[in-house]
């Protein structure tokens, strides 16, 4: 290395020799010093690793403590009640849970096919020199902060949808029995559908980048054999690549779902913050994270604050389950790739 800066152990042992001390004594001392610093460094790094575990533990504990007043007051009814009245201090989480699930489902319905098609393009169709730039561009979508999606959704996407897509949907499905309730009401622009659309764009890069990794991990021999038998590109993907990469793709989708469930700012801008469960996708609603972001600083009274923290706890439990499942599946495919 650099002899000037880093003193090697031998140098320390030899040059630090005092005249009064015999060489072996100072050498032992130097070694002891090194041993101490060695074990100290080990202990510090281990403490840091344990601290990461402690972090998750303390997040859970603090949320449970914060949520307990509300959970005690409302019990199980908190989960199934739609009322949300800060004045009478009566809270139920049904509307935010409903909004969170519905927006995420819309997002996944759009983002999964779109992401897989982009992956197909990137791994099978795209010329080699274009793969990297296009891949990076898609991943840049993940780099844009969520508040940017929010402001763009509010000022650009929502008015656009209000003028075009939403009236079209209302007209189109106005007389169809089930779909007419799904697309009922005036076109507000903001609402559950808009939030779902924005979430779809936001999770698209996660799905694309993970499925790209697992698509590329498919042994080329398998694909070549299939092509050699006369498969078309689509058939190769459908019957060779997808079955092989299934677990990984599902893991990637779950990871995207975890993001969609917890996404806050982008949704807060366009969801409309209405605590009600309405069957129409065009109506304003709310999600767990949007409720917390909108109301937490304005919450007066311990029960109100506690109800919002209980919402947070609920969100954490849901995302924890989804993300654990995602990680488990991705670990399985990693083990297979070796």
């Amino acid at each position: 290395m650099e002899p000037a800066r880093g003193k090697a152990m031998v140098d320390v042992a030899l040059t630090d020799t005092n005249i009064e001390q015999p060489a072996w004594l100072s050498r032992t001392k130097a070694l002891a010093r090194l041993r101490i610093s060695d074990s100290l460094f080990f202990q510090i790094t281990r403490a840091a690793a344990v601290a990461v575990l402690g972090l998750l533990g303390s997040i859970i504990i603090s949320l449970v403590i914060g949520a307990s007043p509300a959970l005690k007051e409302f019990g199980f009814g908190f989960l199934v009640s739609e009322r949300w009245n800060p004045v009478t201090e009566n809270f139920g989480a049904l509307a935010p849970i409903y909004g969170t699930l519905v927006t995420s489902i819309i997002a996944m319905l759009i983002a999964v096919p779109l992401g897989l098609l982009i992956t197909l393009f990137l791994t099978e169709l795209c010329p080699l020199w274009l793969r990297r730039p296009i891949g990076i561009a898609i991943e840049l979508l993940a780099g844009i902060p969520s508040i940017i999606y929010g402001i763009w959704g509010l000022f650009m996407l929502a008015p656009f949808l209000q003028r075009t897509l939403q009236p079209f949907l209302i007209d189109l499905f106005g007389n169809v029995p089930v779909l007419s309730t799904l697309f009922a009401g005036p076109p507000y622009g903001i609402g559950i559908l808009t939030a779902g659309l924005i979430l779809a764009i936001m999770v698209l890069p996660f799905i694309t980048s993970i499925s790209r990794d697992v698509f590329e991990a498919v042994p080329p021999v398998l694909k070549e054999a299939a092509y050699g038998l006369g498969f078309t590109t689509w058939e190769v993907v459908r019957y060779v690549v997808l079955p092989y990469a299934r677990v990984g793709v599902i893991g990637g989708v779950m990871l995207g779902l975890g993001r969609a469930l917890g996404e806050t700012m982008a949704v807060t801008f366009v969801i409309g913050n209405a605590h009600k469960v309405s069957p129409s996708l065009l109506a304003p609603g709310t999600t767990i994270s949007a409720s917390i972001a909108n109301e937490f600083t304005e919450a007066v009274g311990d029960l109100y604050t506690s109800a919002l923290i209980a919402l947070g706890l609920l969100l954490f439990v849901i995302t924890f389950v989804v993300l654990s499942a995602a990680r488990y599946m991705l670990m399985r495919i990693e083990r297979r790739i070796g």
Partner: peptide, 26 residues
Amino acid sequence: ITKVVRFINDILLSAPSIIIGLFIYE
């Protein structure tokens, strides 16, 4: 420990950031 920390760390990596806000508030 490493296996557990890696798993937990991956969860923290994608955990909703608003939860972190609530945690620090508490």
